[in-house]
Amino acid sequence: MFTSLWRSALIALLATASVPAWATQRCVVDDDQRELCLAAPAQRIIALSPGATEWVYDAGAGERLVGAVSFSDYPPQANQLPRVGSYQRLDLEALLALQPDLVVAWRSGNPRSQVDTLIRLGVPVYFAEPGDFAGISATVHRLATLAGTEAIGHPRAAAFADEVAALRERYRTATPVTLFYQVWDDPLMTVNDTHFISEAVRLCGGINLFGALPRLTPKLDLEAVLAADPQVIVSGGMGEDDHRWVDAWRRFPSLQAVQAGHLFFVAPSTLQRPSLRLLLGTRALCDHLDQVRSDG
């Protein structure tokens, strides 16, 4: 196996050896605090998570993608990309056969040993882990730099940051609304205040009732939610129009969120995936909390 891995890696290195000497070097620091420099704009990019696939498209470099992992489903054309395994288990043979000159890895989600193998074979790897809105903007900005698509990616990253700042200012003095966000159903799970979903909640003037818990995605007992009695319950689901999780709360009529009809669904790909589309989910969340305020 590794003989063929080395052969594929050698092919990739020889392909980049023909880059003209005058090409401008492109350097960024990734989310693993590693400096990554490319001698020329990346032309053959592989993304190792669905989120990474979106970041590359957000950066204006979608046409440079030659491979992705399973469940990379947005934008729609991403469904046509060759697959190199899943984010949890990479197919290194398939990946190296595509001769990438840049791999975008998910820092905490991909198997580190496999990604380290790519690095040892000389494949340029950018580790991404945007944990907040600023990190998403920075990721898109850096990938645009590596791909030479600054004219597209940099304005998009800046516009995203500007719109986030506008939302923060708009809701700075909004009446607080207590909220439970359900990220999973079995086991029942939420997010704490270090998660980007909680940043979206705060942007809209919401209070995450479980934000102080130590784990990023803590498990909860049903009784904890009933005792907290949130004004609002927000959930995604197993699909983009799957309301079953949020509708299931109707069986607890004692909850004020149920009594007031403040049970809301937000498509998970717009609020649980850290791409520029997070702004869409945040706006939807803000609209829901505005409804709660208007209902009194």
Rank of each mutant, 00 (worst) to 15 (best):
W249Y: 10
G239R: 13
L263Q: 04
R250F: 13
F264S: 03
E240I: 10
V266G: 06
H262V: 03
R250I: 09
A260F: 01
P253G: 11
F265Q: 08
V246I: 14
D241Q: 13
I233N: 00
R250A: 10
R244Y: 04
D242V: 02
D241V: 13
G237C: 00
G239N: 15
V266A: 09
D241W: 10
E240L: 08
H262E: 02
G236T: 04
A260L: 05
F252T: 08
M238Y: 07
V246N: 07
R251P: 12
E240Y: 11
V258T: 09
Q259T: 05
L263C: 07
L255Q: 08
G237S: 01
F252L: 14
Q256A: 04
D242S: 06
H243Y: 08
M238G: 14
A257E: 01
M238W: 07
P253R: 10
G237H: 06
A260Y: 05
V234D: 07
W245I: 03
W249N: 13
G236I: 05
R244E: 08
G236W: 05
F264Q: 06
R250D: 11
M238V: 00
F252C: 13
F264Y: 14
S254Q: 15
L263D: 11
E240Q: 15
W245C: 00
W245G: 00
R251F: 03
V246Q: 08
V234G: 05
S254R: 15
H243R: 14
D242N: 08
G236Q: 00
G261W: 07
G261V: 08
A260K: 15
F264A: 04
S254N: 15
R250V: 10
F264C: 05
L263N: 03
F264L: 08
R244L: 04
P253M: 11
G237M: 03
F265H: 11
D241A: 15
D247K: 06
M238F: 05
A257I: 03
G236C: 04
R250Y: 09
V258Y: 10
D242Y: 07
G261E: 09
L255C: 12
R244W: 03
V258A: 10
R251Q: 15
I233M: 01
G239D: 14
R251N: 13
W249A: 15
Q256L: 02
V266Y: 14
F264R: 02
F252K: 10
H262S: 10
W245D: 06
H262I: 04
S254K: 15
V246P: 09
E240F: 04
V234C: 01
Q256T: 05
S254G: 15
A248V: 07
V258F: 09
R251E: 12
